[in-house]
């Protein structure tokens, strides 16, 4: 009796019918736990640190677009309060100066955007402002690329990109933050 059952077992194959269920179980586990993290963000290149105080460079006032953000997240742009939404168009006009106005940048190469915030400024506001500045430059570079090569900046070759950057260099200077506001 016992012998026979052993023989039976030997001849039996492992039932693979439940394999699919097990695999399904694992699949569902991984489906649930998966977070296809796409880390995106505003890419920035910080300037190197030096212990000496920075050289005082003199620029013509018309070439500097100063943005000050205080601890209440208000913007002071070239001495006047401004909303974040209007920033991009204003910066674009400042850099390109299509009407050759006396108070805007002499040329796109000379234009400098200066950003200064307070230690009490909210990070969200800072990123918003930084994003607008970057957006202005990106749009101008794209417009140039379209005019010269007929495609967007990101699809250009390395040499073509250099050519565009030579015309519209992103000059963003960040000053050390002030410490008036409460952190």
């Amino acid at each position: 009796m016992a012998k026979k059952s052993v023989k039976d077992r030997m001849s039996n194959e492992i039932n693979a019918g439940s394999m699919a269920d097990i695999a399904f179980l694992l699949l569902i586990f991984f489906l649930v736990t998966t977070t296809i993290v796409e880390d995106k963000g505003v890419l920035v290149r910080l300037p190197p640190w030096s212990d000496e105080p920075p050289e005082v460079l003199k620029f013509k006032t018309r070439n500097v677009y100063s943005i000050l953000v205080n601890a209440n997240n208000d913007l002071l742009v070239r001495g006047e309060p401004k909303k974040v939404e209007d920033l991009k168009e204003s910066i674009k006009e400042f850099i390109m100066n299509p009407q050759r106005r006396e108070d805007l940048a002499e040329s796109s190469v000379d234009a400098i955007v200066s950003l200064k915030n307070d230690r009490g400024t909210k990070y969200e506001t800072y990123i918003e402002v930084y994003n607008e500045v970057k957006a202005a430059y990106n749009e101008l570079q794209n417009e140039q690329s379209q005019a010269r090569f007929g495609k967007n900046f990101e699809f250009l070759t390395r040499e073509q990109k250099k050519e565009i950057v030579a015309v519209i260099p992103m000059k963003l200077s960040e000053a050390e933050p002030t410490a008036f506001g409460e952190e």
Binding site: D39, K40, G41, V42, L43, V44, R45, L46, P47, P48, W49, A71, N117, D118, R119, G120, T121, K122, Y123, E124, Y126, I127, Y130, N131, E176, P177, A179, G181, E183
Partner: peptide
């Protein structure tokens, strides 16, 4: 997003001192 810039500035300074210049503000 609610953090104030004080601590962020300190971290940025530390990164600059450490020679790490490529920074990505996650958003």
């Amino acid at each position: 997003r609610e953090v104030t810039m004080g601590i962020v500035s300190d971290v940025k300074t530390a990164l600059r001192k450490a020679g790490q210049f490529k920074v990505n503000y996650s958003a």
